[in-house]
């Protein structure tokens, strides 16, 4: 077992080490600011961190992501549950959601810039849209997928409609709900970066676009590495939550 784990770790880490080594060597050979070696990027990372620039930018992006994502999840869950439980609401909202869901989130940017203006509400609204549709859709799918016989069983055991909703329907729909949450966990970061690059003067996206103007490839790479870490961390948080919630019974 231990040997299997160490082999798996080696297979995971080895390509990363090889990639970083190749990057380092190539960077030293190229000798151009357009392709800095990995060590230069690490140094710039510490430099930005010690000056507080990195944390300030990350904090701005993170707070936007958290607010927009949380609001999007809550609204998506609410609408998805309502549609899943009530046929009239489902029939009324389905055409609207089918029409709006396929629009790429960034497609809303020009319209929202005109409607909302360039302020904090813009990226939050974009992230809200990014999270809302998939969460609503997956919640609806999950609830519709719960076999009605389980609801009958709950009723024969004396459960009220609300008790059945919270203790049978939503837990049984949770795998589908988590799929929606997990799929969008990385996407909301891509969305906030795009919004900050185009329209907002703070955050990681803004740092990226400023670095591009100053031809600071090392800062661009720091931002990209940080983004990769944030996207995968967010996805992993939801994978962990999903496993904690549904792992024992699925």
């Amino acid at each position: 077992m231990k040997r299997k784990i160490s082999t798996d770790s080696l297979l995971f880490l080895l390509p990363i080490f090889l990639f970083l080594a190749l990057w380092e060597i190539s960077g030293h050979i190229a000798q151009t600011p357009l392709f800095p070696p990995f060590s230069k990027v690490v140094m710039e990372f510490w430099n930005l961190l010690s000056k507080g620039i990195l944390l300030k930018s990350l904090g701005a992006s993170l707070s936007r992501v958290m607010v927009g994502y949380l609001l999007g999840i809550l609204a998506g869950l609410f609408v998805g549950i309502l549609m899943g439980l009530n046929r009239v609401v489902e029939r009324s909202l389905s055409p609207l959601i089918s029409m709006l869901f396929p629009i790429p989130t960034l497609g809303w940017l020009p319209l929202l810039m005109l409607w909302i203006g360039i302020n904090e509400a813009l990226p939050v609204t974009l992230i809200f849209i990014c999270a809302f549709f998939p969460v609503a859709y997956n919640t609806l799918t999950g609830i519709k997928g719960v076999n009605g016989e389980y609801i009958k069983a709950a009723r024969t055991l004396g459960a009220s409609t609300w008790y059945t909703l919270w203790h049978v329907i939503i837990p049984m729909a949770s795998p589908s709900i988590f799929t929606g949450l997990r799929l969008e966990a990385g996407m909301v970061w891509r969305t906030v970066i795009a919004a900050e690059m185009f329209a907002i003067s703070t955050g990681i996206g803004s740092l990226l676009i400023n670095a591009e103007t100053l031809i600071r490839v090392d800062i661009i790479l720091v931002c990209l590495i940080l983004l990769s870490l944030m996207c995968s961390s967010f996805e992993r948080i939801f994978i962990w939550l999903e496993h904690r919630t549904t792992g024992a019974w699925r």
Binding site: N147, E149, Y150, K152, A153, A154, R155, T156, L157, G158, A159, S160, V168, P171, M172, S174, T246, A248, W249, R250
Partner: peptide, 21 residues
Amino acid sequence: PTERRDVGYLLQDIYLFPHLN
């Protein structure tokens, strides 16, 4: 309503809630 009829019902396919031990 069903929930107040005080009837124990073992459905044909039982339908134990999969998320509960």
